[in-house]
């Protein structure tokens, strides 16, 4: 439908009054940083309600699972930020997880097995990238299909059930390492996110990702290799999902063919909810990281309070719905500002 509001001719005086980007109004500051306050609030509330919530063991566990989830959602964050979708990431993680478990239980050593898992991630990343970015086929249906393919193979590797592992190899050793009180993994993932933030904010890469979502035609006209950029994003999503799957194999000491389902909602929720932080509704890596910590804390704390799976699932769904609503609301606000 043509946007009639866009055709309105603003008067010179009204247009000149449009706010400049200098200085944040209190409302904007709340929107930009409010989410971080919410993250802290969740942790404070649960710490008060259940002191075990901040016991070192629990904190460590939360850090581990948050790190793995954050890694898995990195590629998804930028794909959604660029205005596309990937619903295969969690199944690719499950497949890489089962590949590692299958190879290890079949007698392969861990380095070889992790290489296999990684290869799977690259393979599915390339498949999505070729079909969606290369051939410009519809992203949703293609990634539904490739996700189903990955999930199906994951189940087939374990003949329909999970594979438990007796050793966790060098990956397990890695997961056990600590830097001071922090798990090494958390430090590594934090470092990856710092690099990602750098790419997003300081390199042309991030600039084009966001510009793509806003006006693909403008970016193409400027001579940016748009297809190559989208191609890389899908490959990246496949690779980080696979790495997360490998880590999960060691963390859970098993291969879980159906582990994807729980990450599906969490991934999209983290990306969209996190988009509210810093960038007014645009998915961004710092937002995703904060949202992953928020979700981990919330779900973990809720479990300590004795909430059922059902209640936690409803919280997940509601949060995603709230995230979508907020994003659309923030966008229309920005849009109004443009035409006011």
């Amino acid at each position: 439908m043509t946007d009639v509001t866009q055709q309105s001719v603003p008067t010179a005086s009204a247009a000149r009054r449009a706010p400049a980007r200098q200085g944040l109004q209190p409302g904007q500051a709340l929107m930009r940083y409010g989410f971080f306050g919410l993250v802290i609030a969740v942790f404070v509330v649960f710490a008060v309600l259940r002191p075990t919530f901040i016991a070192p063991g629990n904190i460590h566990g939360m850090l581990m699972s948050a790190s793995i989830a954050a890694l898995m959602f990195l590629g998804l964050t930028w794909i959604v930020a660029a205005g596309e979708i990937d619903v295969s990431f969690m199944s690719v993680a499950a497949l890489s997880n089962m590949t590692v478990a299958g190879l290890v239980s079949g007698g392969a050593d861990w380095p070889l097995a992790t290489l296999g898992g990684l290869g799977i991630g690259v393979l599915f990343g390339l498949l999505n990238a070729t079909l969606v970015a290369g051939l410009r086929l519809p992203a949703l249906v293609i990634t539904i299909a490739s996700g189903a393919l990955a999930a199906s193979i994951a189940a087939a590797i374990g003949l329909g059930t999970s594979i438990s592992l007796s050793t966790t190899g060098y990956v397990g050793a890695l997961l056990d390492m600590r830097v001071g009180v922090l798990p090494l993994l958390a430090v590594i993932v934090a470092a990856i996110y710092v690099v990602a933030w750098f790419m997003q904010e300081k390199l042309t890469f991030g600039r084009y990702v966001y510009a793509l979502e806003q006006n693909r035609a403008a970016v193409e006209e400027a001579g940016v290799p748009v297809n190559r950029l989208m191609f890389m994003l899908y490959v990246l999503s496949g690779v980080v999902s696979a790495v997360a799957g490998i880590l999960l194999a060691a963390n859970l000491s098993s291969g879980q063919p159906y582990l994807g389902t729980s990450y599906f909602l969490d991934g999209l929720t983290a990306v969209l909810l996190g988009g509210m932080a810093l960038k007014f509704g645009k998915p961004n890596v710092i937002g995703t990281l904060a949202a992953v910590i928020f979700l981990t804390g919330l779900l973990n704390g809720a479990a300590l309070l004795g909430w059922t799976d059902s209640q936690r699932q409803i919280v997940r769904g509601s949060l995603l719905l709230v995230g979508v609503g907020l994003v659309v609301y923030a966008r229309t606000r920005t849009h109004k500002r443009k035409t006011a």
């Binding site: 979708i85 599906f264 799976d309 059902s310 699932q313």
Partner: peptide, 21 residues
Amino acid sequence: FKLPDIVTTIATGGLAIGFSY
């Protein structure tokens, strides 16, 4: 309300699964 269909229906589907428990 012009919400994006894909993410919205993923969310309502998640809600429905929650209710089913």
